[in-house]
Design a protein around this nucleic acid. Structure first.
Lengths: 102, 102
DNA sequence: GTGAGAGGTTTGCAGCGCCAACTAGTTTGA
DNA sequence: TCAAACTAGTTGGCGCTGCAAACCTCTCAC
């Protein structure tokens, strides 16, 4: 029940390392496909797949499946809400960090 | 298997919100007692207790128990190693964040 | 056709965070 | 004096969730 003085609580959905990596990569580009995300984040396919599903369910990313060169292609982009929540998360972290430098 | 290009991996032990809060608070003071940490982090006693145990096992904090005014008192301080690893963690986060702002 | 590989998804489990319940001791007050 | 209430924690049980391995489906080379 005790709320911290300034709210230090972090959104687990975003804070989780794997997803934070995905979201951060996504926020530097307009969109990215599965393979690119896998290489940049270092996640295994399985992890990446399940994280993407969670992010999609939370409306943080939009996923478009199609075929490119006859191969399945999964394209991922942040939703506006996702972009905003990631930005807010970094602010939250910044706030937390400032505590330690004062 | 695949390592990311630049290492984006985050230390779960430190990254976990509850512990990150504890460690960050601790890095702004020389030491703190249980009740102070509970108030500043907003964690429940149970959480705080188990997080502290983990941090102690990992040698990130040192815990000294004593009695103050006849009451049990738990005093916590970062170890040198803890201090360094927390600092490194924030650098790691900063590196990750820069990806998204380039 | 068949073997290898790309591109994912599903499954199983281990580990962890979270709250509730409990312990141990102290103070209050009837 | 004895019990109720409070302080300061610790422990246990449960449910979630991250992880890797196994699996699936399609394509291409031979």
């Amino acid at each position: 029940m005790p709320e911290p003085d300034g709210d230090l609580s972090l959104d687990r959905l975003i804070h989780e390392p794997g997803r934070l990596a995905i979201l951060t990569v996504l926020s530097s580009v307009t969109d990215a496909d599965f393979v690119f995300l896998q290489r940049t984040t270092g996640l295994t396919k399985g992890n990446l797949s399940s994280h993407l599903t969670k992010l999609e369910n939370a409306d943080l990313v939009e996923i478009v499946k199609s075929f490119v060169h006859k191969k399945p292609n999964t394209n991922v982009a942040l939703t506006p809400e996702g972009r905003e929540r990631v930005a807010r998360h970094w602010e939250q972290l910044e706030r937390l960090r400032r505590l330690s430098k004062s």
